[in-house]
């Protein structure tokens, strides 16, 4: 029972930490390289424990993210929902991909996410972001293997105790 509770707290903790990381600013030079942490974290949990991640959860996390650093309420909720939906749909295949293929899939998901964001911003009549804005998904995908292995390792350790 307590193990179950532990793992639930671990789950909530990683999501909260991802939201916090999203708010922490980087130096101005590194700013465009900041990956979209909540998306990466949600993707990990989608692949790892499907019964926890639902569209409703993605929507909730997105709304929270919007409340903390949104430009428009519902924007990140929509993006995360779309991403989790695609990941859930291809979950069984994504899970057994070799790491490099998984990384490419994550890159595609993150790029798709940026395109969605761009569409929303255009509809909201905001200015086009500069070119460096497109670097972030690549950084996110490059970090994916490390993030995945780190979270996986921490999770197995937590389970063993």
């Amino acid at each position: 029972m307590s193990r179950y509770r532990d793992s639930r707290w671990w789950f909530i903790g990683t999501l909260a930490f991802a939201l916090l990381l999203m708010l922490v600013p980087l130096p101005a030079a590194l700013e465009p390289f900041k990956p979209y942490w909540p998306a990466l974290c949600l993707l990990y949990w989608t692949l790892e424990s499907e019964e926890r991640v639902t569209l409703g959860l993605a929507f909730g996390v997105g709304l929270l993210a919007d409340m903390f650093n949104g430009v428009l309420l519902g924007e990140q909720a929509m993006r995360l929902c779309a991403m989790v939906f695609i990941a859930l749909r291809f979950r069984s295949r994504l899970r057994f991909f070799p790491m490099w293929q998984q990384t490419l899939a994550v890159l595609a998901l993150l790029l798709n996410d940026r395109i969605l964001l761009l569409v929303v911003r255009m509809l909201a009549n905001e200015a086009m972001p500069p070119a460096q804005w497109w670097i972030a998904p690549f950084i996110g995908a490059a970090l994916w293997p490390f993030l995945y292995l780190l979270l996986e390792d921490l999770r197995t350790r937590l389970r063993r105790q």
Partner: peptide, 24 residues
């Protein structure tokens, strides 16, 4: 998915019109 996306769209439009985000 369609339900959630529609909900998000409604929220976005309402926020754009009335600034819900800041009230929240």
């Amino acid at each position: 998915l369609i339900g959630y996306l529609a909900l998000a769209l409604v929220l976005m439009v309402l926020d754009q019109r009335n600034g819900w985000l800041w009230r929240m």
